[in-house]
Structures are given as structure tokens and as C-alpha cells.
């Protein structure tokens, strides 16, 4: 019994040692563990021009302009984290999930004019999963503008849009509006 107790203490002590070592190492390298830097981090301490890094944030509402650059699709948009904003230029095809209000991660570098030249743009998906009917119902009822931010709490939309038809969606929106009225 005492031998078992001793082994248990030994294993737990080793575990505590390894755990704190890992925690120290990870907090020390926290900057390099981060996948991207935010616009406000760039505003505070801009990376040197010519150094490639990843910029991450939300595509600002109303900032996307799609154009053609020598026959290739190109886009200009602003990436924001609410406090600072960086203008991004990208030549190439944007991923399927790309839209205003969506999270993006762009790889590239700061140009001399202060804007960001992206070589590659990745779309970041959020943690919300909803069918099209529910998204449409939320948008139509004015409870959510996808370009402006994340959707309202799931408890308000889980009861919506069970039917795949348009009437089901509008019915859901009506019931949502009713419940909002009853609540207010």
C-alpha cells in the first residue's frame, strides 16, 4: 500500500512538473503559436515592410469591392477587429465562405502605402451552424445582419425554419417576432 502511494505521488509530481514546463514553454512562445495578428496589434507595433505574416479579423461591412486585375479576379476589402482596420488588396479567387462580416486570415505583407498586399486569403468559419431557412428568417425579421456580426443566441433560432419551404421560414420569423414582442 505504501509502495503504491509512493508511486502515485511520484507520477503526480512528474505530471505537475511536465504540466508546468509545458505551460511555461507555451506562454513564452505564445506569439509564435498565434496563427495571425490582428489589426490593432499591427496598429500598436507594425511588422517591418517586406516581412510576410498573417493578418486576421472580420471583413468590414460594406468594404468589399471586387474588380479585375489584368483579367484576373481581384478584391479590395478592409479587415477589422473593432478597434483598428487594415485595407487589404488581393489578386486571386476568394474562398467559398468569404463574405462581409466573416472572419478571414490573409497571408502577405505591408506595402509602403500602409495597406496589406495578400498573396493568399483563407476564410475562417465561426462556431454557428444553421440551415439556410433559419438564416433567412433571422435576416428577414431584422434580428441579424450577417455583415455586421455574429448571429443571436441559438435559443432564439433553434425553433425556426423546421420546414424547408418558404412559408415555414416566414412562419418561423413571425413566431420569433411574436416572442420578441411578448418578451418586450
Amino acid at each position: 500500500m505504501t509502495r503504491k502511494r509512493r508511486r502515485l505521488v511520484l507520477v503526480l509530481a512528474c505530471g505537475a512538473g511536465i504540466g508546468s514546463a509545458a505551460a511555461l514553454a507555451l506562454s513564452a512562445f505564445s506569439d509564435s503559436v498565434a496563427f495571425f495578428v490582428s489589426p490593432s496589434e499591427i496598429a500598436a507595433k507594425a511588422p517591418p515592410p517586406g516581412r510576410s505574416f498573417r493578418l486576421g479579423g472580420l471583413v468590414a461591412q460594406g468594404s468589399l469591392t471586387r474588380l479585375l486585375d489584368g483579367g484576373r479576379p481581384a478584391a479590395t476589402f478592409r479587415v477589422t477587429d473593432g478597434r483598428a482596420t487594415v485595407t487589404v488588396h488581393y489578386v486571386g479567387i476568394l474562398p467559398d465562405l468569404f463574405r462581409e462580416g466573416q472572419g478571414v486570415v490573409a497571408l502577405g505583407e505591408i506595402a509602403p502605402d500602409g495597406s496589406f498586399r495578400a498573396e493568399d486569403v483563407l476564410a475562417k468559419h465561426d462556431e454557428a451552424y444553421m440551415p439556410k431557412e433559419v438564416a433567412d428568417a433571422l435576416k428577414k425579421s431584422g434580428h441579424w445582419n450577417p455583415a455586421a456580426g455574429p448571429p443571436p443566441p441559438a435559443s432564439t433560432w433553434n425553433t425556426l425554419g423546421t420546414g424547408a419551404t418558404g412559408t415555414g421560414a416566414t412562419g418561423g420569423a413571425a413566431s420569433l417576432a411574436n416572442s420578441a414582442k411578448a418578451g418586450g
Binding site: E127, A128, Y129, M130, P151, P153, A154, W157, N158, T162
Partner: peptide, 9 residues
């Protein structure tokens, strides 16, 4: 918190 996923999923 409540899951941010539609119940049908």
C-alpha cells in the same frame, strides 16, 4: 452555454 447549432443538425 447552449450549442450554437441548429437542433436538426
Amino acid at each position: 452555454g447552449a450549442p450554437t447549432m441548429y437542433l436538426g443538425m
